[in-house]
Amino acid sequence: MANDLQVRDEGSIFWGSFWMLVLSVLLFWLPGLGSLVAGVVGGKIAGGVGRAFIASIIPSIALGAILGFLIKALTGVAWVAWLAGFGIFAVAVGGAAAMVLGALIGGLLAAK
């Protein structure tokens, strides 16, 4: 029982990243503020500043990879898919500045 409590207190990068992705999709209509709120919530769930930073980058990587695979399936040209996936990843990371800032704030709130 003590191990369960210890794991829960530590936080989870996966669940922090998951909630950042879900909340940023649900709050897309609030430019900047929606990503900031998603970052704060996900950073608090992640459990620390370093974990929150990693969790805030994972949705951008996942988006680039998923869309890269979809483009490969649609075009059949690997270098086009790689280039498009990398471009989508770069745009997602650049646009996720508010999420990263929110994640750092949430990570600070989670740190004891």
Rank of each mutant, 00 (worst) to 15 (best):
A52E: 00
V77D: 15
P59L: 07
A81D: 08
L83T: 15
T75G: 07
I71Q: 01
T75P: 10
G64W: 00
I71K: 02
G85A: 06
T75L: 12
G85I: 02
I88E: 03
G48K: 03
I45N: 03
A78W: 12
A46Y: 02
I57R: 10
L83G: 13
I71M: 04
V80G: 04
A46E: 03
I58V: 12
A78Y: 11
F69Q: 05
A78Q: 14
K72Q: 12
V77F: 14
A84R: 10
L74S: 11
R51N: 08
L83F: 13
I71V: 15
L74Q: 12
A46C: 12
V80D: 03
F89K: 01
V80E: 09
G64N: 02
K72W: 15
A84V: 15
K44Y: 14
G47A: 08
W79Y: 14
F53E: 09
G48P: 11
G68L: 00
I66W: 01
L74E: 12
V77H: 13
V49L: 14
G47L: 01
F89W: 07
V49Q: 14
A65S: 13
F53C: 11
L63D: 00
L74F: 13
V80S: 06
A90P: 07
A73C: 04
S60W: 01
G47P: 10
F86Q: 02
V77S: 12
V80F: 07
G64A: 02
I61H: 04
G68E: 01
V91A: 14
L63K: 03
L70E: 05
A46L: 06
G76N: 12
G76V: 08
G68Q: 01
I54C: 05
F53T: 13
I45K: 05
V77T: 14
V91N: 08
L67E: 08
V49K: 15
P59E: 06
F86S: 06
A46N: 08
